[in-house]
Amino acid sequence: MNNQALYNYILGVTDNSLILAQRLGELCGHGPSLETDIAITNISLDLLGQCRSYYQYAAKIKGGDTTEDSIAMLRTEREYVNVLLVEQPNEHFGFVIARQFLFDVFHLLQMQELQNSKDETLASIAAKNIKETLYHRRFSSDWVKRLGDGTEQSHAKMQEAIDALWRYTNELFEITEDDQKMIDAGIGVDVSKFKETYYKQVAEVLEEATLKVPENKYFQTGGKKGIHTEHLGYLLTDLQYMQRTYPNMKW
């Protein structure tokens, strides 16, 4: 494969969506109301759809027997390069919303840049994703406000979730070697450029939600290098179960 950097870059973008979709899928049938269940499932479906487009493209680049499913389900834990934020568990609904919100703000900024990529496939997938992501951002922001500025109890729970997940936000803006190659080629997005915008946009919503912007400046990192939190292994156990137990079959 002469395009290893592009391949890796695509995984860097897409693993986030896959792992988050998987987390949201766990909630199916267990949400706080039927309407919320339907909404969360919709987001999960959007993210899954995005993954499929990217992984299909990545599979084409890699060639051979590679398929969207072998990429999604047959790597070792160390080969997944999603950020730590998206693999964090659904501790309670506040975590679901906080994780979604902290990711959506980033994801939208990322897609808005990626639609200008010199790589036409990436650009066109991104352009389609923007609409979905815009809606996700709106959904999660609304809920951050509802829970933050709802009852005393919900305020505390929402603050707890924001505080707990804050340490994973800085990693969103890290750039790997392959990312840098792709940025230099005009294909990848220099995410570090909108770091300030990100924190500003996040702070605006948190403020409206009467939540405190955490002051913690000590951040966790590792996901982009394949060094994850303990949670990912269990998630992958489910995700990969069928492909691992029954290798080389069609489903």
Binding site: L34, E35, I38, A39, N42, F139, D142, R146
Partner: peptide
């Protein structure tokens, strides 16, 4: 069911126009 108008719109979008 929805708590407010915004949520009602969002829910309607997901429930009735998916």
């Amino acid at each position: 069911h929805a708590a407010d108008a915004e949520m009602a719109l969002a829910n309607a979008r997901d429930v009735y126009t998916r």
